[in-house]
Structure formats: structure tokens, C-alpha cells
Simulated scan of single mutants.
Amino acid sequence: MRIATVTQNLRIDNSITSIQRQIADAQLQISTGKRSQVYSGFDGQDVRLLINLKEQRTSVESYVTTIKNTQVKTKTIDAALVTFTDITQDLRKKLYEQVEGLYDNSALALQTFANAAIDQLTNLLNQTADGKYLFNGTDTDAQPMIDAATTKGAYVQPALSGGFAGVTAAVTTFFGTDTNWNNVTTPAPGSLRARIDEGVDVTFGELANDDAFEEVFEVMYAFANVNFQPGDDANYEQLVNWGIGKVEAAFELINDMVGQNGVIGAQMKTREEAHSDSLTLLETQILDIEDIDPYEAVSTFQTLQAQLEASFQTTSVLRGLSLTRYL
């Protein structure tokens, strides 16, 4: 039998220190439920897999964030377009009411409606989300519509007594020049775009100077500025029929915009749901690597604690030996 040496004592001390470190790790695992707080605490293969899974999770989360931000914009656009169609439909209804021929009684009501609707429609096309204009393509920092007061002040319409052709020519010429009523640049800026998945982009948005919007504004301005007088019936009737034709065509086109915007919204919702499923799977895989079985952690802690106690007892015995006791 050998008497304990300084080297043996050092080895025992190192062993005790190692066990104490393992106990501290086990305590941390019990308190956090995680196998390790750093990558070095995992096996090499698990580290590579964990890094890959977390990168995938980050990518999917970024797509989800993009979708949510884009949905705010498409929903705002949808609300604006739906309201635009509602006002256009009301305009069509009021124009049909004029056909009854009681123009001296109904012209003023239509004129009042058109004046108020111009302000509403202009504000709708100047809608923003996150401080960005939605009806000016990628030029989101520029207000697409000139304010209604300025446009109303710039527009000049001849008297209806001068003939139907003169009134329609004036309004068509005015709105045929974009700079008279909107700020959309030429050539028109591209559509808004968002990447919602790897290699998958959606384009969305409408331009304020779209022909459908222009048609409605032409009719609105024509009737907002008409000054019906006795004897203008024939010209007014022509103006009403002209307005009905333009509004009905515009109504269909704007409805198509609503439908297309809805298709984009549905596409994003489908992608968002798929991403949600992917995130659930990725999170499960990550937790399978990161998390530790609490029973396993407690069992390891108890085993290490017993080893530590045994080591302390052994150290105490060995350090209590002397030559006299040995003999």
C-alpha cells in the first residue's frame, strides 16, 4: 500500500472540481430546462443541426413579418377600393334617377353629391400605411393626388348652354393631363412588392391615375360644376347618359381591382398558415435538441452529488493518513 502523495491529492482535488462544475451545470439545467446555454455544451452534430434549424426559423419568421406588414397595406387598399366602389355605385344610382327627366329638381342634388364625393375620393387615393402612400406605386413618399381644393380651383367648365360637347371636352382634356389632378410620375412607378416565401414575391397596389379612377373623376367634376338652367334639358340628358356609360365601365374595373387585391390577400394568408406550421415543426425540433428531460437532469444531479460526497470522504481519509497510523 502507498501513502497518499501530493500528486494524488492534486488529482483528487481536480476530480472534485470537475464534479462541482458538473453539478453547477446540472443545477442550471434543472432551473432553465435547457441542456446548455452555449453551443459548446452540445455534441458536434447537434450543434450543426441546431444552427441550421435556427437559421431556418429566422428566415420563416422574416417572411411572416413581411406578410403581416403587407397585409396592413393590402387591407387598407381594400377598404379604400371598396369605399370607392360604394361611392361610384351611389353616383350611378343618382345618374339613373336623372333619367326621369325632372332635371330642374334633381340636378342640384347631384351637383351637391358630386362636390362632396370628390373630396372623399381624393382622400381615399391618398391613403397611407406606416406613413407610406399606397396609390403611387413604389414612389411611396409622394402624395399621389393633388388636394381636392387645388384641383377644383384649377378646373374650368363651360356653361351647359354652350352644348354637351363643350362640357365633356373640357373635363376630358383637363383629366387627360395627369399633372392637373395627380402627382403620379411618368413613366408610372412599379407596383409595390413583397417577398412572402423563398423565391415567391407578390405585387400589389393601384395607381391613383388609373383610367378607372380618372373616368369617375371626370363624371364627378362635370356634374359638380354643371349650372343647369331651364332650356338645358337636351344637353343635360346627353351629359347624364355620357356619365352613366363612363361610371358603369369604371365600376366594373374598380371591382376587378377589389377582386385582385382579395386574391393577393388570400395568397398571403395561405402562405402565413404554411409558415405557421413550419415554425411549429422547427420549434419542436429545436426544443428536442435544446431541452433536457427534467427527470434526467435531477437524476444526473443526484448521482454527481453522491460522487462528490464520496470524493470528500475519500479525501478526508487519505489526508488523515500518517506513517504512524499506517504502521
Rank of each mutant, 00 (worst) to 15 (best):
R271H: 13
T74C: 03
D233T: 13
S59M: 08
S40A: 04
A170R: 03
Q238H: 00
Q307S: 08
E214V: 08
A234T: 12
G199S: 07
N180V: 12
Y236P: 06
G33T: 15
N225H: 13
L95M: 06
D104M: 15
D291T: 09
T280V: 08
V167L: 13
V226M: 05
D291G: 07
S31C: 01
I87T: 14
D178H: 00
N183C: 00
T284S: 13
G265K: 10
A169H: 09
D197H: 05
D86Q: 15
T112I: 10
V156S: 14
D90Q: 14
D233C: 08
F213A: 07
G33D: 11
A80E: 09
A142G: 02
G131K: 08
P144L: 06
D141S: 13
E215W: 00
F174M: 09
G205M: 01
Q111D: 07
R271N: 15
Y39R: 07
T284N: 10
T177P: 00
S311I: 02
I51W: 05
R11M: 14
V72Q: 09
G259R: 07
E61Y: 06
G162K: 04
A107I: 02
K54S: 02
M257V: 04
R319W: 09
N235G: 07
Y96D: 11
L287N: 15
I196C: 10
Q157T: 05
T58A: 13
V216Y: 01
F251K: 10
A148G: 03
E198Q: 10
A80S: 14
R11T: 11
L239E: 00
N115G: 15
G41W: 02
S59H: 08
D178V: 07
V200Q: 14
D291A: 15
N52Q: 06
K94Y: 03
A117M: 04
T85R: 06
G243Y: 04
E273I: 07
D256G: 09
I30K: 11
A194V: 13
Q22V: 05
A234W: 02
G245E: 14
L110G: 12
L102N: 15
T32D: 01
Q143G: 03
V219S: 11
V60A: 09
Q29K: 14
S31R: 12
A170Q: 06
V99F: 00
T315G: 13
G176T: 05
T300E: 10
L124M: 02
M1K: 15
T173I: 11
V82T: 12
V202E: 09
R48V: 12
T179G: 00
V64S: 15
Q157W: 05
R11V: 06
N180D: 08
A222I: 03
